[in-house]
Design a binder for these strands. Structure first.
Length: 253
DNA sequence: ATGACACGACTATCGTGA
């Protein structure tokens, strides 16, 4: 089973890239973030024609998440239960017996800002909900744009800003690991300076000035089944790319 | 020190992203 995550930075603009990538990679499930569209604009027909089911939780201009899958998704859930939030950042569905949770974590803007406080509140709510979700679903994958680079090696040495690498954000990421979730990328040998996002400005991709902030975490019951996890940098070189690259996890399921 | 680039929004600059 192949599960991937990709922040597409507007599904309207990126749909051709997504369709090409699906055809080339044939994932069983793909988590998408930053759709930046309302549900009524979701390109369901095009994705169905490509052989995929889709469930989505969209909003105008900002945020928006979706799960595409070969098999029909069941037990679809939108938003973190009990957490009052206008922003559409979570969708969950069960695919082939695996609970897939797709998240677009808040950016946080600047350490100490109101948006930063929201980011930490959101992370706390997510963690508490996941604790319960993991009780009900032994096989669980949490994929998405976490907007946190968990360790120093996950940020370019010249990344001077505090946001995405601050102690409170990393503590919140560690709390997810504390639930038993495993960062599958680190189960395998990886190239030096592996990142999943590069700024559009200043030739950042060419210079590999990036951050590893897109992750695929699995529950303990799935850890032994992991066969590979890698960043696919290919789409980042296309015309009008997303600033994020897909991350792909292969499971022996 | 600031901005750079991309996207969407009541098309004209601006909020937001990371």
């Amino acid at each position: 089973m192949k599960i991937a995550t990709w922040n597409v930075n507007s599904l309207k603009v990126r749909l051709p890239h997504v369709l090409d990538w699906l055809a080339a990679n044939q994932p069983d499930a793909l988590c998408l973030q930053e759709l930046k569209m309302e549900d009524k604009a979701f390109p369901l027909a095009e994705l169905q024609a490509a052989g995929y089911h889709a469930v989505y939780n969209g909003q105008k201009t900002y945020n928006g998440v979706a799960i595409l899958s070969r098999a029909a998704p069941t037990e679809v859930l939108r938003d973190i239960p009990g957490f009052s939030d206008e922003q559409k950042r979570i969708i969950a569905a069960t695919v082939d017996g695996v609970r897939v949770i797709c998240g677009y974590f808040p950016n946080g803007q600047a350490v100490g800002s109101e948006k930063f406080a929201y980011k930490l509140r959101w992370l706390t709510a997510l963690t508490e909900w996941l604790r319960e979700e993991m009780r009900q679903h032994e096989r669980l994958v949490l994929g998405g744009d976490f907007n946190v680079a968990p360790e120093d090696r996950d940020a370019h040495p010249d990344w001077k800003d505090e946001i995405h690498v601050s102690e409170p954000e990393r503590a919140a990421f560690a709390a997810l690991l504390g639930l038993g979730l495993v960062d599958t990328f680190r189960l395998f040998e990886q190239p030096e300076r592996s990142y999943s996002w590069w700024d559009y400005r200043l030739f950042a991709f060419r210079r590999n000035f990036g951050l590893r902030i897109d992750h695929l975490l699995v529950s303990p019951a799935l850890t032994a089944a992991c066969r590979s996890c890698a960043v696919d940098k290919t789409p980042r070189s296309l015309e009008r790319p997303s600033d994020h690259a897909p991350v792909v996890l292969e499971l022996a399921l």
